[in-house]
Amino acid sequence: MSTLTDLRIAAVGDIHLGEDVRGQYRKKLVGIEERADVFMLAGDLTRHGTLEEGKLVADELRGLPIPVVTVLGNHDYHSDLEHEIADELRDAGVIVLNDDGVVIQCGEHKLGVVGGKGFGGGFAGKCASEFGEREIKNFVSHTRGIAESWKMALKEMEADQRVVLSHYSPIKETLEGEPHEIYPFLGSYLLAEAVDTAGADLILHGHAHKGSEKGMTPGGIRVRNVALPVLGRAYAVYCLTCAESPSHDEHQH
């Protein structure tokens, strides 16, 4: 007999921590293990992407009682120290995705997470294309390469539920509230197209502080903008329903 259980995902983006708020965000995470099975961060953990800020974020996230998965955001790239910041986070036990995936064992369920920073370019019908100057081609091909990596990672992944974690947005709906003129810098439909092709249960992103929390891809995958200013709370919790069946016993660890 199969029963239904929930896989609980706590999520936030754009926490933008700095020395002046050291320790304050950590206080909000007390008891997170009672509310969620995993904690996901959608990038922009720092303000300027300095190593000092990276270490501070690592300190804030160190030793949480549930798995922590993150991607970096554009702010975390600003000082060209994204690899060093990722290393600091990994040393603190945080899983940092960079256009790849991870499978986390949450109780009896395998939760697959694929993601990375993402990038911009705009949305179908009103977007940049790989044409003209080298700079524009580079811009678009950067996004296209990321989308392709996510699609491959999702297709190869074996998990009960699959979540995509991004900084940039895959859809326009969750940008509502932002000026339309900057949409091409906030995300790209190529990300949604890739995820719709490979399949996933939920997409989380940040970046758009004035956007809206809830949207959906053209393929019907739920999208949530978890940027802290959008949520207005320390993190959101999304529950994915898992059907428990005997076949779960066969999964390898």
Binding site: R8, K28, L202, R222, R233, V237, C239, T241
Partner: peptide
Amino acid sequence: VVEATEPGEDEHLD
């Protein structure tokens, strides 16, 4: 200045 409040209600995606 926006201070993040306590996490609120869960959302069930079914």
